[in-house]
Amino acid sequence: MQLSDREQDGVIVLEPKGKIMGGPDASLLHDKLHEILESEKKKVVIDLSGVDWMNSTGLGILISSYTTLKNSGGQLKLANVTEKIQSLLVITKLEGVFPAFDTVDDAIASF
């Protein structure tokens, strides 16, 4: 997995690409999130358009990001959830947990 980030209208947009399967992927996203929190940014969108698939480790990272931000008074939103990831969210009953939007712009506008 590769990870890039940018800021748009005061919102941090994380753009993981590839497959999120565990190991180094998990620490990369986890470290980036904590870096964001230390910079006092509280609004985060994860753009999933470039993610081929993720497994339960990826879901765990999303949950960890969601709860960490929420406990710090922030919010996490998802954008461009692919069909494969959406089906995992449905199977695991997590689809109602994460606010999800069709585009990054829609997710940003929702804050």
């Binding site: 765990g60 949950i63 969601y66 199977i91 695991t92």
Partner: peptide
Amino acid sequence: LAEENLLKEVGRGIFI
């Protein structure tokens, strides 16, 4: 899928 486990970060692998 149990309510108390829904937001746990681990424990879904075999289920998936």
